[in-house]
């Protein structure tokens, strides 16, 4: 198998602005990378360049020892040994489930009993063996998704690409499919690249998250790392729930802020230049001593109450509480941690 390397990859459409701008990225063999970003950030274009449907206007893509895309030319998709789960699943409506899954094998010259056996093995993995003779139209959304996955699995591709595969499924089915994807990754050992705009999905699945915005790559890190130490306002706003406050941070260069530092900042004691500080709601809780803040809003979300608090200058801070607090009242909160962006 092979490592996938993107070198200063750019894609500009005729005359327009760059959809992807100078992205460099290494996906190690067997890794599971989530490409995360708002819609229109260039993540799908990047994925389509990796698949070979689009040609970069600058930079190159290297798979193992081989250059597969440059601005001059690209290895056709049919010769890349990659597989993809499309957002629409792209099941061929005129073929049965078994024919859909077996088609890549057929193109590789596998026939007869071997074709049938390998197809059924792939269908077994996604637990669809008993629907092999159905047409895609007769399947539910989750089942179609699993057929698309089985079609990827059947040829042991070097790289599996997933383009927002859960976007068309309802919430319950998503959780079940996330499980299937994790399982699929562990079992196949394939390098996987997963495009999504849903940060919870990215966190739950990937070993690494790459955040993109406006065609540029902003940060690549493991999920827990990117959650605790996001780089910059865009990443901080995209990953997890959190409030980004513009606060005077004084002379301090320390980015990780403890309780005392947070309180000093929130009370405006430090003075100096304004910096963006990220404070996560789980780090703000009602306490016996701390700082007094006004409760603007209190919404019961099931497992707890989500609070919106107002600072003296009117900026808003999110927090969680086990108890209901009346909107308009003042309460004392402890801010445990903060992160200077």
């Amino acid at each position: 198998m092979a490592t996938l390397i993107l070198n200063h990859l750019s894609k500009a459409y005729d005359g327009g602005r760059a959809a992807v701008n100078g992205v460099s990225l290494t996906v190690r063999d067997g890794g599971f990378l989530a490409l995360l970003g708002p819609s229109g950030c260039g993540k799908t274009t990047l994925l389509r360049m990796i698949a070979g449907f689009e040609q970069p206007s600058d930079g190159s893509i290297v798979l193992g020892e081989r250059v597969i895309s440059t601005a001059e030319g690209a290895l056709p998709p049919e010769r890349r040994n990659m597989a993809m789960v499309f957002q629409s699943y792209a099941l061929w409506p005129h073929m049965t489930v078994a024919q859909n899954v077996g088609y890549p094998l057929k193109l590789r010259g596998v026939k007869g009993e071997k074709l049938r056996r390998k197809t059924m093995e792939a269908l077994d993995v996604v637990r669809l063996a008993d629907l092999a003779e159905r047409r895609p139209a007769a399947l539910s959304g989750g089942q179609r998704q699993r057929v698309a996955l089985a079609r990827c699995l059947v040829t042991s591709p070097d790289v599996v690409l997933l383009d927002e595969p859960l976007a068309n499924l309802d919430r319950h089915l998503r959780a079940a499919m996330e499980e299937t994807f994790r399982d699929f990754h562990a079992r196949s050992g394939a390098t996987m690249i997963y495009v999504t705009h849903d940060q919870a999905e990215a966190m739950a699945l990937a070993t690494e998250i790459a955040v993109m915005s406006e065609g540029r790559l902003l940060q690549v890190a493991a999920p827990n790392e990117i959650y605790a130490r996001p780089e910059g306002k865009v990443v901080g706003g995209l990953i997890g729930q959190g409030s980004i406050l513009s606060l005077p941070v004084g002379a301090g260069r320390e980015r990780s802020l403890d309780r005392a530092a947070c309180h000093a900042l929130l009370l405006g004691e430090a003075g100096g230049d304004l910096r963006d500080v990220l404070i996560r709601p789980e780090h703000v809780r009602p306490a016996a001593d701390g700082i007094a803040l006004q409760v603007r809003d209190c919404v019961f979300t099931g497992e707890r109450h989500a609070l919106t608090l107002a600072l003296a200058d009117g900026s808003l801070l999110k927090a969680y509480s086990d108890e209901r607090l009346a909107p308009g009242s003042m309460a004392v909160f402890s801010v445990e941690r903060g992160w200077s962006l």
Binding site: P77, S88, W92, Y103
Partner: peptide
Amino acid sequence: IDPALEEAARLSGAGLGR
């Protein structure tokens, strides 16, 4: 036709005629 239907076939290894 969803263009992905043809793209899926390309990634599966099918050339133009196929």
